[in-house]
Amino acid sequence: MPFVYHAPRTLENLFATLDSLEQYSLLAGGTDLIVKWKEKLIDPKAVVDINGIAAMKGIEECPHCFSIGALVTHYEITASARLRAAATALYEAAGEVGSPQIRHIATIGGNIVNASPAADTAPALLALNAEAEIQSRTGISAILVADLFTGTGRTCLKPGQIISRIKVPASGQNQGSAFVKFGKRKALAIAVVNGAAWITIDGDKIKDVRLAMGAVAPTPIRLLAIEDWLRGQTLAASTFKTAGTMAEKLVRPISDIRSSAEYRGDLARQVVIRALETAARRAKGGCACG
């Protein structure tokens, strides 16, 4: 029921606070945390509000990559012209999350650590090969976002560990990415199936590719077998169609209130086809966001 509230302003204070607490919930945007608390799905003894920690904010551009603070909101991502150009799938995914109200306060870090299988930014981050910086009192390490998820609602983060920033490789020449989402309506929708593709082309061939999908497994997943097959293939509608068929056979989604498993399979196929098509078009077009 009631909880104690902490609002550390620095990472140091944060880790000291976390160390002092037996049980806590981190509050970033809170758009999931507060709902779970209201629905009595969680009962934190302490809520640690991390919104004051400057080190977890801002979008910085490094050579060939972006460093995105875990507290960066989805709105900030959609307002970034650089992310739109060089991390297009993430830009698109962020714009598909919830509503404007949600995007104004919900954070990318929160979207990841919730570990929802349907999180919109997750497939984009997987396809872009993003890394999460895990920080604790004892130090900092990096892990692929793809390796962060251990199950629905579960990550490999241990007590006292937080994600401070996300590193997203920037797409360059001959590279493009795209995010595709199927929801039950055009806003305020949780994905029935979502997915993203990142592609590097060499002439009319696929040089490298990454495909990720959400809401078809307990966690967002990479479709490695299809990626393997796609490398070296010709850029053609038939190639994408074959990849789509492979995806439909590969994924083992569940039936729930949003969809039947069978229909999710149908959508998985379309997600792959459309994400690949769009990513390839962007890779060819020079302008990554075209």
Binding site: K184, R185, K186, A187, A189, I257
Partner: peptide
């Protein structure tokens, strides 16, 4: 589906 996250009404975009 007893909340507005699961009982879906048309939004302005629909």
């Amino acid at each position: 589906n007893c909340n507005f996250a699961t009982y879906l009404l048309p939004t302005s975009l629909d």
